[in-house]
Amino acid sequence: MPNPIPHQKKELNQSQQLMIFVLSMSLFGIANIITEIVPEFSFGPVEFSVSYFAFIPLAMVFLFSPLPAALGAPLGEIIFADLLMGDFGGIGELEGFIEFALALYVAGLLVKNPNSRKQIAIASLVGVGIDQMLSTVVDIGKVWVGIEELEAVPGVPESILVLEGISFVNEMVISGVLFGLIPAMWLVPRLHGKIEPLMGFAPREDVSFRSAKEIVGARFLVFSVFFIFVGMISEFMAEMDVNFAVWQPEFIEQFGQQFLWVGVSAAIIVLILAVMGISYLKKSSSSGNPSRKAQ
């Protein structure tokens, strides 16, 4: 008489997605409150402040189904750190939400095996990179729209580019590497296989949360964001007739056109850092990481 009823499902059900969403939201929310409390040290436009603990949402998208985790985290930031703390920026929040959610989602899709530090490192940088590139694009766009005949105001376009470049590098180093990549590499493998039973589901495996289409989509997104970024900056420079020559012409001669690609060079710096980090980790993790076989 007893007839076993099959209830096994491959995909996460709605409640489990809700669980991931709520978890990601709560954690990143509280993390944002903490970063608000942490004092800032600023040196002119270069701020030595922790603008966000990127490793938390990154860990969430690496460990769980990326979409609910990617949507939950920026919402947590908006609710906890902005809305409840009386610092809600309205539309500005929406723009941040889209940028960050997209960045996280793509980063999550890039990770195949949460135990692979290499993948975590790359995905972390790509994640923070996309977020920062998009916000740079939006910032420049705002100035472009907000100041009438911007090209006619001497100095400002160059100034905007330089400041955005500094902030980009600054964010990539602090949020991307110090509070993104490094803690994520420490945290994710520790949590993998341990947090899932606490929440009542099986650990993530290669196939569980992503389809081939999504992966292709994610890669496409990475490239398109990069091209938008580069395209926007070059277009901006062309339109504005940006001429850094006014300022120290010898400098330009020495370094040529590359210097103008502020954003691009920033990306390169980060890339170099990533390669260094990965090669270092490859050495340290090559000894005994059984789950690597899964690749």
Binding site: E148, P154, V156, E158, W247
Partner: peptide, 23 residues
């Protein structure tokens, strides 16, 4: 302030400040 300050390096003048003010 940062933008205006940096703009001065790139040959900016008071127009920069005025433009920035609008923004």
């Amino acid at each position: 302030g940062y933008v205006i300050f940096t703009a001065l390096f790139f040959g900016g003048d008071l127009t920069a400040a005025a433009a920035l003010l609008t923004f």
